[in-house]
Amino acid sequence: MSNLLSSLRVALATMAICVAGYTAVILGFAQALTPTSANGSLITNDAGTVVGSRLIAQAFSSPEYVWPRPSAVDYDAGGAGGSNLSPANPQITARAQELISAHGGASVDAPIPADLVTASGAGLDPHISLEGALFQAARVAEARGVEVSAIERMIEERAVTPGGPFTAGRIVNVLDLNLTLDADLAAPAASQ
């Protein structure tokens, strides 16, 4: 009986300090110092509408935009997940073939970067590889009626090494890049 009473008292104490107290401290710290990232790194347009989150991939299928990696959950940021397909699963092959043709084909001499045909862990990877972005530059340039080199330059400017010296490749944030494309280059509909 004294065991139960003591257990309840300790439960109450840990609940008050490790749950209520700790959450309040970290919440206060985050909301005071980094309110933007604390609330999900949301991006708002001039009209005040939330257009997405810097950290969350969204679907792109129009030719004038750079496309993200495929998503096993169709970019559902309210129910994220990976494909969980085993490495030899034929569904991975079928998906890759579909994406290769959607991207206008690839060949042994000009292969498609692997990140563009593999689903990420959460289905919301906000990045693609620099090579994956450059692979799409020609399509975007044609759709927007500009030189390929202009698109390539914009992509290069936005490529970062995520871990500095500790990571090998460079990556590009897709939403960030597409917002810049819209801001700097008129979409074909607007230019005519």
């Binding site: 990696r69 990976g82 494909s83 969980n84 397909l85 490495p87 030899a88 699963n89 034929p90 569904q91 991975i92 092959t93 890759a96 073939q97 290769i100 690839a106 060949s107 042994v108 000009a110 292969p111 498609i112 970067p113 692997a114 990140d115 045909v117 593999t118 689903a119 990420s120 862990g121 959460a122 990877d125 906000p126 990045h127 693609i128 590889s129 090579e131 995520p162 490749g169 990556i171």
Partner: peptide, 19 residues
């Protein structure tokens, strides 16, 4: 599953996050 397709060589990226 990507063997034989025109996909650039890389480590296994299925289920991985680039950043």
């Amino acid at each position: 599953a990507l063997t034989g397709l025109p996909v650039a060589e890389s480590s296994n990226l299925e289920g991985k996050e680039l950043r």
